[in-house]
Every structure is written in structure tokens, then in C-alpha cells.
Simulated scan of single mutants.
Amino acid sequence: MLKSPVTGQLKQGFYGFSWTYLYFGFWVPLIRGELVVAVLHLVLSVVTFGLWQIVVSFLYNKQYTNRLLEKGFRLTDTPERNQRAAAALGVDLSVHAARAA
């Protein structure tokens, strides 16, 4: 779970392979509120005849969650889950905690 310290909005972060993206493609970023990303992914999927969708299935969840972190969201789950997520995302929790304080 991630929380925006400014708005208090909670969002679920993801990492690892995205079966949802593999099956639904550009609809995933569209439903998650990323209109520009959805349009870009639609165009790239059409241009590459669907190959883009297969490749991005391995990358999308991590990129989405990192974009949330860049927007100021903070990891707010249990310490164990935060540790696993930080390791999978390549995020330094000490820096993350310092920015949250």
C-alpha cells in the first residue's frame, strides 16, 4: 500500500510480472488513471503488433509503483511488506523514510 502524505489518498502498488497487463494491455494504465501512459502503450502495441504488450508485462507493475513513489506516495504497509517491495523496486527505505519525515 502507498499513501500520499499531501492528499491522504491510498493506492495499491505492484511489482513483478503483470498478468493483468498481459491480458488487458493499455486498459490497465487507463483504469489506474494514467491516460498518457495508456495512449502511448496503445500506440506502441499497435505498431509492434502486440509484442510491446508481452514485453511490458514484465516491466509495467514496477514502473507504475515507481511513478507513484516519484509523485510523493510513501510505502505504508507492514514493515515486512515494505522491505520486500523496496527490494523488488530498488528503493532505499532509509532515504524513503527520511523523505516521509
Rank of each mutant, 00 (worst) to 15 (best):
L2T: 08
K3S: 14
S4C: 09
P5D: 07
T7P: 08
Q9W: 00
L10P: 00
L10D: 01
L10F: 14
K11E: 08
K11P: 04
Q12H: 06
Q12P: 02
Q12K: 00
Y15M: 03
F17H: 01
S18N: 06
W19Y: 10
T20D: 05
T20Q: 00
T20W: 08
L22K: 01
F24W: 10
F24L: 09
F24M: 13
F26S: 10
P29N: 07
I31M: 14
I31C: 11
R32T: 12
L35S: 12
L35C: 14
L35D: 06
V36W: 12
V39L: 15
V39A: 15
V39D: 08
V43Y: 14
L44T: 09
G50M: 13
G50E: 06
W52L: 03
W52N: 05
Q53E: 02
Q53N: 04
I54N: 02
V55A: 11
V56I: 13
V56K: 06
S57I: 04
S57G: 05
F58D: 02
L59F: 14
L59I: 15
Y60D: 02
K62D: 14
K62R: 11
Q63G: 01
Q63K: 15
Y64F: 12
T65A: 08
N66T: 10
N66M: 12
N66E: 00
N66A: 02
G72F: 15
F73G: 11
R74E: 12
R74W: 12
R74C: 11
T76V: 15
T76Q: 13
T78K: 13
P79Q: 10
P79F: 07
R81E: 13
N82M: 09
Q83K: 14
R84A: 05
R84Y: 03
A86F: 09
A87K: 09
A88N: 04
G90K: 02
V91K: 02
D92G: 04
L93M: 15
S94T: 15
S94G: 02
V95I: 08
V95C: 11
V95Y: 05
V95H: 11
V95Q: 11
H96Q: 05
A97K: 07
A98T: 01
A98L: 06
R99F: 12
A100G: 11
A100I: 06
A101P: 04
